[in-house]
Structure formats: C-alpha cells, structure tokens
C-alpha cells in the first residue's frame, strides 16, 4: 500500500512526508499494519538505518512481521496493540540519547499517540518523522466528554464514551494526538446529517 496523500486543509491537519534515513544514528521505530512497508522501503534505501534501531511492530492483522524481522534491527519486538507496547515504548523514549531519531509509520491513530508520547518525553519535534500508510481512520477526541474514540471512519460518528453524535474536524492537537469531534446536532437535537466515509 503506497504512502497516503491527504487533501490540503488547515494548518493543524498533520501531513506526512516519506521517511528519510539518518544513517546509523540511534533509532526508535514504531509501525502498525501497512506501516511496515514504509520501514521496509526505508531500510532498502539505506540498510545502515537498522544498525542501532529498536523496532516495535503492531501487525493488526497484517502479515509483514517476518519481513520486518529480517531487516536486521538491533532490537525487534511485536506487540498486539499500542497499549500493550506502551510501557516498552515509554522506556525506550526515556533511555533515548541525544540524536536519537524516531520513525513512525502506519495509521494516524498510531502516529498521533506515539508522537504525543515522544513530545511529552522531551524528544525534539525535528527528531520525529512520520509516514502515513494504510487505513485513514482517525483518532478523535470528543470536546464534550473528553473521551477518545479510536478508528473513526465516518463523519459524523457516535462518541464511544458519551454517545453524542460528533462531526469530524480537521483541527488536530499534537499534545493529545487526536482530532477534535464536536456535537453535530447541538443546535437542532436529533437532526443528524447522513454518515459518510471519511476521505483522505
């Protein structure tokens, strides 16, 4: 699956370039599902990028694990979910030395959460690269109840916490790693526009 090109939007809507290797600098890599292909292409362009890499992969049903493992990262780990990988990822951020590069690849939910963790841990923004691959589902925060709904693919959608019907904004918080969802029928309760698939 190739890199996703998102249509132009407001300044907070994240855009993702292709990953570029920083040679054999210490590296932390985190990918989910189709994001594996971005790392495979990265390693093909510059095999040295794996020399000091700690690679964490969340397959989410994809079958790229064996190929990723063969890239020769110094440390390789597969996790069943982001929350299962979180403590390991946090420790890796805590242990990261000056100059460590963070490579994120896959869905916006993974990239958003992982980048927010990295910024909170003090990694400079320019040490973080991200490339979008795979599902364009979004991670949405309900502005009303503050609950986060993962893997939102329609607009509007129902908040999985408070049950309000929310529309999908392009306004994105890097601190929360989430887009903002706002009640779609606040002014006219019960009058909800037809649900449509989110587009890139």
């Amino acid at each position: 699956m190739p890199r996703t090109e998102f249509s132009p939007s407001i300044a907070t809507r994240p855009v993702y370039a292709a990953l570029k290797a920083h040679g054999s600098a210490p590296a932390l890599m985190l990918a989910d599902a189709e994001g594996a292909e971005a790392l495979i292409e990265l390693a093909a362009a510059d095999p040295a990028v794996m020399d000091r890499a700690h690679l964490i992969y969340i397959p989410a049903g994809a079958a790229h694990g064996p190929r990723l493992r063969e890239l020769g990262a110094k440390m390789y780990h597969e996790a069943p979910s982001f929350s299962a990988a979180l403590e390991r990822y946090r420790k890796a951020l805590l242990d990261a030395k000056m100059g460590t590069q963070l490579y994120l690849a896959g869905t916006e939910g993974l990239i958003g959460q992982a980048a927010a963790e990295a910024l909170a841990a003090g990694l400079p923004a320019d040490a973080i690269q991200s490339e979008h691959r795979g599902s364009i589902a979004r991670r949405m925060q309900c502005v009303h109840c503050k609950g986060v709904t993962e893997d939102v693919t329609t607009d509007p959608f129902v908040c999985s916490h408070c049950g309000l019907t929310l529309f999908v904004r392009d306004h994105f918080s890097r601190r929360l790693g989430a887009f903002q969802g706002v009640c779609v029928d606040a002014e006219t309760p019960g009058i909800v526009p037809e649900m449509k698939e989110i587009k890139a």
Partner: peptide
C-alpha cells in the same frame, strides 16, 4: 474555542480554524 484542546499549540496552530486570514 477549547483551551483544553489548544493548550501547547503555537500561534499558527491555534489560529488554524480561522478562514481566509492565513
């Protein structure tokens, strides 16, 4: 606008939803 959502944003980010001005 929501402080809880916008806290930590830079000048361009918190103004992102404003049409035309950019």
């Amino acid at each position: 606008w929501s402080l809880d959502f916008d806290i930590g944003m830079n000048f361009y980010e918190w103004h992102a939803p404003v049409p035309k001005a950019n």
